[in-house]
Write a protein that binds this DNA or RNA. Structure first.
Length: 277
DNA sequence: AAACGGAGCAACCGCTGCTGG
DNA sequence: TCCAGCAGCGGTTGCTCCGTT
């Protein structure tokens, strides 16, 4: 390393920025059929003008069928906090304990919700403490409990911008047990804060969730098989729309049971909705 | 109604670690 | 053992949306 490795892709030749639905569809379609053995070559093979890294990120963070969508539950947030205590900023490790959640998502939630909530709790707690103890010598007590405690609880602006992550981590060490932490969340949290608006067109999610694979499925459904047949039919239509069908005929690797010629009207409708949105 | 500011989140960037030649 | 190529990870950026003035 050090000598300047060649960039992973020619940035002048790849598209950047937000993904279009067409690109999403191409990526989903390709991965559904061929998997993602090689991210680097995937964009070419899938007909995408994107960097492999970008495709990988898009798939992992947004398009993967086993993703849980929507707001984090209180339970999940508690889990994140708990895991952050033991793993620190190892977001992928934390994500691995939360099925259906991505490291990026968890990282964002941590930075936007949890850290903030924690700070407000700490502020709240610090002022309460001050009120109860009155003029009790804070430095003395802090030093007794931990050398860092004075940094975490001393004063109104406990968390500095630079290393607030570290400090919050240290702050956790002050909690006696996890139940205290959970209680704290309940206490500090305002219910409306948990309701992160997530108003992406449900049709898009219906479409994406149509690829839920049985082994990854978090919520097995009785009618899953018929849904899969629907999805496969939909795919045939999608492929012809996207001009991918010739590749498919050459290297079909994954079993596709449904071989019907015409797509069902509802799927066609979904597709049109997606395209026209 | 318009302007502004903050919050939230998707995407990018650059580094690290693993693997195979 | 070394090196190159790759995927994966974590930090950061910048865009969009929404609430407030």
């Amino acid at each position: 390393m050090g000598k300047g490795r060649a960039p992973c892709c020619d940035k002048t030749k790849v598209k950047r920025g937000p993904w279009s639905q067409d690109e999403d569809l191409k990526l989903i379609s390709f991965i559904h059929k061929y998997g993602h053995e090689n991210w680097r070559s995937l964009p070419n093979q899938a007909g995408l003008l994107r960097c492999g890294k970008s495709c990988r990120l898009r798939w992992i963070n947004y398009l993967r069928p086993d993703l849980k969508r929507g707001n984090f539950t209180l339970e999940e947030e508690e889990t994140i906090i708990k895991l952050h205590q033991s793993f620190g900023n190892k977001w992928s490790k934390i994500a691995s304990k939360l099925p259906g959640r991505t490291d990026n998502e968890i990282k964002n939630v941590w930075h936007t919700h949890l850290k903030k909530r924690l700070s407000s709790y700490i502020n709240h707690n610090a002022s309460d403490e001050a009120a109860t103890k009155g003029s009790l010598n804070r430095e003395e007590t802090s030093q007794e409990s931990s050398p860092n405690a004075s940094r975490s609880f001393g004063g109104s602006n406990i968390v500095s911008k630079e290393d607030d992550d570290v400090q919050i981590g240290e702050t956790f060490e002050c909690f006696q047990d996890y139940s205290e932490l959970a209680g704290m969340l309940q206490e500090v949290d305002k219910p409306e804060l948990l309701e992160i608006p997530f108003d992406i067109d449900p049709d898009v999610w219906n479409f994406i969730n149509g690829f839920q694979q049985p082994e990854n499925s978090l919520t097995p459904r009785a009618h899953q098989e018929s849904e899969e047949a629907e999805v496969d039919k939909w795919f045939k239509n999608l492929e012809s729309e996207l001009g991918l069908e010739e590749d498919n005929s050459q290297q079909q690797e994954q079993p596709n049971e449904a071989k019907e010629e015409s797509p069902s009207p509802s799927l066609l409708e979904s597709y049109e909705l997606l395209i026209n949105h």
